[in-house]
Design a binder for these strands. Structure first.
Lengths: 342, 342
DNA sequence: CTGAAAGCGCTTACAG
DNA sequence: CTGAAAGCGCTTACAG
């Protein structure tokens, strides 16, 4: 298919080594020879065979990113952040979508290891012991962004301060007079949802607020779960006046359930959320939400991967915490008089 | 890092060839030997080195997909379709985001060629002569999905019948009494926007409708372009009563401009669109739009790549056309009395 | 400065 | 059925 060093070497009557040397530009080569080789290289549009190179032990200069859901704006933005950071340093990136399924995570990681990536950036659930072992064995840097599975061993990570963010969000509700607050807390095996729930609880405690245990609804992250949870909460005798959803899809689901039951947000009930991003700017009301600095995540994740790689001694795992942003939006308001509606 | 055939061969006192044979399972190996090797393979969790394999000329069993904008739901869904189809056949997929920029397309294609992918699936603009040449030289199958650049030579493609879809959408407007229809036609170097504009024009002709030339607004695909175009149209003395946007972002942009100017959709003006997908189901009103069968695109694209690869003679390029879906939505209504607003 | 040689991990005719 | 050998395309000590 493509021309090899050999072709060019033969054509010029020099050795493969010499051609290789000018390609790599490190070793010294006679000025004149270099000129001739360079010309031939260009004439053939020579591209080194990456397979061969990597086989010889060179870096593939590629990062792999795993995301749980490529069609969730949170993750697609995140990917863009990683891409940009990687590109700035001359690296490529391979994206793998996992649906948060451990089987697909495992397969995705195998793919990336097989492609000998320089680092793995993980923004997906479903990372289990088995996968961890594989990554460790290969000695490939891995950094978690956004969320880290609780059971994972020592790895670098980039995230926001989820506890603090949730505290702020909860305080916002409390300041608006709410004390009957429920939380759609998501799965309790991920740093994000765990931290967010903890922050929620801290804020309640700090304000001496007690809520019924079942107002803390643990479960999945998705839209369905959000709908179901909201539905259940609404069917109780005593209803919350505000709900916090720890993911964007939980928030969407909750919003639907609320609307279907005839509740106005925030007139009848307030809804605070995490990670809602609206590219169309057409969703109304605008969600009150905490946003993560996803573009910056990319930069830091790449940096951490690279550093880990260069370090010879014990891997310098680092938990990097970046500032979040609280978007006030329009879905949080003062407590309704006495929710009269249906 | 990882165990190699050699390690296992030495451990068992057999030759590398034998181990390789049982790994590949094609050649015949003595039953007993096979058992022992298999056990060792499993014990070490042996993974063949893909670099070495591919270097020896085997398929990488990987597809590459290029999309113009990974955070546009149209494309992220499309990626999911490809992933699923690929996985079903035991292939992996590498995703590359291009922003429709020729430089990034070129770089992305180089990456994929370097990784020796089994096929390239292209759902992005920015595919130029130079890139085409490279792909051709490598003899790697490439199929366009969604859109094809007009200047591209002979390649397979998967798409909807854009002309027909646009005709239907336009007819829907005409049936609603509209004859003053403008179109945000997008860039005129892509099969989608070209076909959609043509369909629009055919429908007008068929109904003896004439519109001012500047109501056909050519340009970019993005939100900004949509806003700008709508803005201009609204500032004229004679205003259209309906607008067709040939992309989702053009439609979003147009919707914003309309709202900002105080127009109600569809009460004051109708808006028909392409490729609007709303994951949150929270955008209101629900857009009237034509949708592509993106999941099916994946299946077909993979099939076409594979077929092209297996074919020995002239590449059997194939233009595959799949049925679209017209979603009636709520953004198209009867012509307003005489748009009294502002 | 330059070439011959070894070797990365694998596959696959070629001989036994 | 099995092993020794060649070779995919490259890089890199090792000698000159």
């Amino acid at each position: 298919m493509s021309v090899s060093l050999k072709t060019i070497a033969q054509e010029l009557g020099v050795s493969v080594s010499t051609v290789s040397r000018v390609v790599n530009g490190k070793d010294r080569v006679d000025g004149n020879t270099r000129k001739r080789v360079e010309a031939a290289l260009k004439a053939h549009d020579y591209q080194p065979n990456q397979m061969a190179r990597t086989l010889r032990g060179k870096s593939s200069r590629t990062f792999g990113v795993l995301v749980s859901d490529i069609s969730n704006l949170l993750f697609s933005r995140l990917i863009k952040g990683v891409e940009q950071a990687a590109m700035d340093r001359g690296y490529d990136v391979i994206v793998v979508n996992t649906d948060g399924d451990p089987g697909r995570v495992k397969r995705g990681v195998s793919l990336l290891l097989a492609k000998q990536v320089s680092g793995i950036i993980m923004a997906s659930g479903g990372f289990d012991q088995q996968v961890e072992k594989k990554v460790r064995e290969q000695g490939i840097p891995l950094v978690f962004i956004d969320t880290t599975p609780v059971r994972a061993g020592n790895f670098s990570s980039v995230s926001i301060d989820n506890v603090l963010a949730a505290e702020e969000l909860t305080k916002l509700l409390i300041e608006n007079g709410h004390s009957k607050i429920a939380v759609l807390a998501g799965p309790q095996n991920e740093s994000t949802s765990i931290g967010r729930l903890r922050g929620f609880q801290k804020a309640l405690e700090a304000n001496g607020i007690q809520i019924p245990g079942h107002w803390i609804v643990k479960g999945e992250f998705g839209v369905e779960a959000g709908m179901a949870a909201a539905q259940t909460l609404l069917s109780e005798r005593m209803r919350p006046t505000a709900v916090i959803a720890v993911s964007n899809s939980l928030a969407y689901g909750a919003m639907h359930a609320l609307r279907r039951h005839g509740y106005q947000v925030p007139a009848d009930i307030s809804l605070a959320s995490f990670d809602v991003i609206d590219d169309s700017y057409l969703i109304q009301p605008v969600f009150t939400t905490v946003n993560q600095p996803v573009l910056q995540y990319g930069t830091e994740a790449v940096r951490l991967c690279l550093r880990q790689r260069s370090q010879t001694a014990k891997a310098p795992y680092e938990q990097m915490v970046l500032p979040h942003r609280l978007i006030k939006g329009e879905t949080v308001g003062p407590v309704a008089e006495e929710s009269g509606c249906r």
